[in-house]
């Protein structure tokens, strides 16, 4: 009886384990290590750099506009 019960238990465990592996894969381990922040910071820094470029460009434009006005 105990043997049968044990084998049923193992079957159940393996079924549960299988069901878990069927769940859609996401970047869980990637996030667990925490280093996703580095990537996000890099992306943000690149965007900020582009914005700074735009601001400088606008200042240049402003000076040209003033020159033409005078």
């Amino acid at each position: 009886m105990t043997k049968q019960l044990l084998s049923f238990l193992f079957l159940l465990i393996s079924a549960i384990a299988n069901a878990q592996s069927l769940e859609p894969q996401m970047a869980d381990t990637f996030r667990q290590e925490g280093k996703i922040y580095v990537v996000i910071t890099v992306i943000a820094m690149i965007f900020v750099a582009l914005v700074v470029f735009l601001v400088i460009l606008e200042r240049k434009l402003k000076s040209f506009e003033n020159k033409i006005k005078n």
């Binding site: 859609p24 996703i36 990537v39 992306i43």
Partner: peptide, 20 residues
């Protein structure tokens, strides 16, 4: 900037094929 950061950090639905 908010969407660049939170778009990667926030939770999204777990869907097959699409994944992340």
């Amino acid at each position: 900037l908010y969407t660049l950061v939170w778009g990667l950090l926030g939770n999204v639905p777990r869907l097959d094929i699409l994944n992340e």
